[in-house]
Simulated scan of single mutants.
Amino acid sequence: MLGLIISIIVVGLIAGAIARLVVPGKQNLSIGMTLLLGIIGSFVGGFLGYLLLGADPSGGFFQPAGIIGSIIGAIIVLLIWTRVGSRRTSRR
């Protein structure tokens, strides 16, 4: 169990960092937020893998993805975050 938690943290940090490098523009995110971005992206990638590929339906609806799925999911989450955040700041 501890190994799973550590691997989710490491993959989340790597996926979040790569997503921040790929998405253009400046994101004001701390290391903790980058880690959270990668972990959420991992579950988004697992969800997309479940929907699109039918990957491991016994694993459940929300499941962590591999590194490629985590990066894709983190990019999607970061794009949504930057769009919602920019819209929220422009209203003030």
Results as ranks from 00 to 15, higher is better:
Gly60Trp: 08
Thr89Arg: 10
Pro24Phe: 02
Arg92Glu: 14
Leu53Cys: 10
Ser86Asp: 13
Leu52Cys: 10
Ile75Gln: 00
Gly45Trp: 02
Val77Cys: 11
Leu37Tyr: 13
Ile80Ala: 06
Leu21Thr: 14
Asp56His: 11
Ala17Pro: 08
Leu51Met: 14
Gly69His: 05
Gly59Tyr: 03
Gly16Leu: 01
Ile6Asn: 01
Leu79Gly: 10
Gly32Lys: 03
Leu21Met: 10
Ile80Val: 10
Pro64His: 13
Ile40Arg: 08
Ile71Phe: 05
Trp81Gly: 08
Thr82Leu: 03
Ile72Gly: 08
Lys26Met: 08
Ile67Met: 06
Phe62Ile: 15
Ala17Ser: 13
Ile6Leu: 01
Ser70Cys: 06
Phe62Cys: 10
Leu79Thr: 07
Ile75Pro: 00
Val77Asp: 07
Gly60Val: 10
Arg87Met: 10
Ser86Val: 07
Gly49His: 08
Arg91Tyr: 03
Thr82Phe: 01
Pro64Met: 09
Ile31Met: 09
Arg20Ala: 11
Arg20Trp: 04
Val77Pro: 08
Leu36Trp: 03
Leu53Arg: 04
Gly3Val: 13
Gln63Trp: 00
Val84Ile: 13
Gly54Thr: 14
Arg83Gln: 12
Val23Tyr: 04
Pro57Leu: 10
Pro57Cys: 07
Ala65Gly: 11
Ile72Lys: 01
Ala74Asp: 02
Leu21Pro: 03
Gln27Ser: 12
Leu36Phe: 09
Gln63Lys: 07
Val84Asp: 11
Gly54His: 11
Val23His: 06
Leu48Gln: 12
Leu35Val: 13
Ala17Glu: 14
